[in-house]
Design a protein around this nucleic acid. Structure first.
Lengths: 124, 124
DNA sequence: TATACATATGAACAAATAATCATATGTTGC
DNA sequence: GCAACATATGATTATTTGTTCATATGTATA
């Protein structure tokens, strides 16, 4: 072990920066995989658009078909459909067909929980 | 009350579409104000970027200064600083100065809760 | 107060994305 | 099969936004 290294280490130990380095390494090990954090961001991105939030809220207590939502929120059918596709692919909504209409609703309690939690933060 | 209206009403009552209209109106009344939903979307938008999520996760258990975060996540100091500004203005992080460094940490349990809830959904 | 270190900020550019328009697909009742 | 209605989808466009580069502000120390 080289003398410089020994020396450097002793200096570091009395240097407050060294504690930081330890923490940085510890945190580095604790960080979830990039891939998971990417997916997590993608999930929140879906909630991060006011049109989609309004659509999700419209389905908070009731299932709604595309036309209902478009009328309710004064949006084009196309726009609603595009957004529902995004909500579907993120597994935030489920749907069932009944005749010509397709009824959408929130996929699970998680979705409601995330929205409610966000709402609490906003309403503070 | 005009006869057409009476007639229309009776027809509507046997029409399954009418139940929808009632629901649409009910939901319309229940929808939170546009303004609040806009703020809610803005909040989630902040979580909806993988760089910011990584930064938030870095602060999950420890306070971290800008340089720590930049090194840890291999980001430029400028980029981290810009993102922290956004996190600050959304009240997701708080900070304190200690000498030359500024230490950032999550602002409250809400933030941790929202991230954890999202993580649950992603890890399914 | 001059220098080095830590962080913040403004401008510019590239990439992501939501709305629109036109059109396609799917379903029902005649 | 064919209207009429309901929903989905592809292409285009305008806007938003994250990063970079250069520079400014703030703090400690010699």
């Amino acid at each position: 072990m080289p003398a410089e290294h020994m020396n450097r280490k002793i200096i570091s130990e009395s240097d407050p920066q060294n504690g930081r380095e330890d923490i940085v390494h510890k945190v580095m090990e604790q960080q979830p995989d990039e891939e998971i954090l990417y997916d997590l961001a993608e999930l929140f991105k879906v909630f991060g658009d006011s049109t989609r939030i309004r659509i999700l809220y419209a389905m908070f207590d009731n299932e709604m078909c595309v036309n209902d939502i478009a009328k309710l929120l004064n949006l084009s059918q196309s726009s609603v459909s595009h957004q529902l596709r995004i909500l579907k692919s993120s597994k935030l909504v489920k749907f069932r067909r009944d005749g010509k209409s397709i009824y959408y609703s929130l996929d699970d309690e998680h979705v409601r929980a995330i929205i409610s939690m966000g709402m609490e933060h906003v309403e503070e």
